[in-house]
Design a binder for these strands. Structure first.
Length: 225
DNA sequence: CGCCAGGGCCTCA
DNA sequence: TGAGGCCATGGC
């Protein structure tokens, strides 16, 4: 059988339990949207997790919270050096401290309630105009904070999809995103879960050095490592 | 000890 | 437009 994007999703879903990403994504059945406080924390987390393990990000978020620095006003009023110290554990802390200030300034001009009302396309373009927000961070913010269906592509997604033969190894971000969303249902919860499952699969089997022997996709993997 | 993390910006062809 | 250098900490 030939793998397809929907089949990969189905297989991962059957083998791994639901992932429950971003600490607060259990809301789908209960609430339609998150509080502004929760959205803000997700946006900050999306910046801090750039090329960084989530465990290191949690420590930084806790430090920010402990110092009452998890809001726009506090981030703008805190000295760069102090802010950088709070988020030290997340790495690239000087760069990220600057990005947090830029995002805070951006949110001052474009409040969360305004952004929430925007169409995905316009929202994505606007987010991409902010220095420090690239395609993955923009899609993560749209998907996880604003709960709108924008599919997140990351190195894991690219690695898995290219290895099993569903795209080229050097596929571009937008190209792979278009490929995937053209084949699956446009649904926030599915986009959220699919991405989380891909991350889980990349960590368990499809690592830099893949563990193909026990991989749940090996029978259909075109590469046959 | 080396490798790698839920990237993005800048520079230079 | 795309390849390469840079940013930096913590877990394994």
């Amino acid at each position: 059988m030939i793998l397809t994007f929907p089949l990969v999703y189905q297989t991962l879903l059957e083998n791994y339990s639901p992932q429950g990403w971003w600490p607060i994504n259990t809301v789908y059945k209960k609430r339609l949207s998150l509080s502004n406080e929760e959205k803000f924390e997700i946006i900050i987390g999306a910046i801090l997790t750039q090329n960084t393990a989530w465990t290191n990000v949690e420590k930084a978020l806790n430090e920010l919270r402990r110092n009452n620095c998890l809001n726009v006003k506090a981030i703008l009023e805190t000295k760069h050096e102090t802010l950088a110290q709070y988020i030290k554990s997340s790495g690239y802390n000087n760069q990220k401290a600057e990005r947090l200030k830029i995002i805070a300034q951006f949110l001052l001009q474009h409040p969360l309630d305004e952004l929430q009302k925007m169409e995905i396309k316009g929202l994505r373009t606007l987010l991409l105009s902010v220095k420090g927000i690239g395609p993955e961070t923009a899609d993560s913010i749209i998907l996880y904070a604003f709960m709108k269906p924008s599919f997140v592509i990351d190195t894991y997604t690219k690695r898995i999809m290219s290895r099993i033969g569903l795209c080229r190894k050097d596929v571009s971000y937008d190209e792979l995103q278009t490929l995937i969303v053209s084949t699956i249902e446009k649904n926030t919860e599915i986009y959220n879960e699919y991405h989380a499952l891909l991350v889980e699969h990349a960590k368990r089997y499809c690592r830099t050095k893949p563990l193909c022997e026990e991989c749940i996709l090996k029978d259909n993997c075109s590469r046959q490592f």
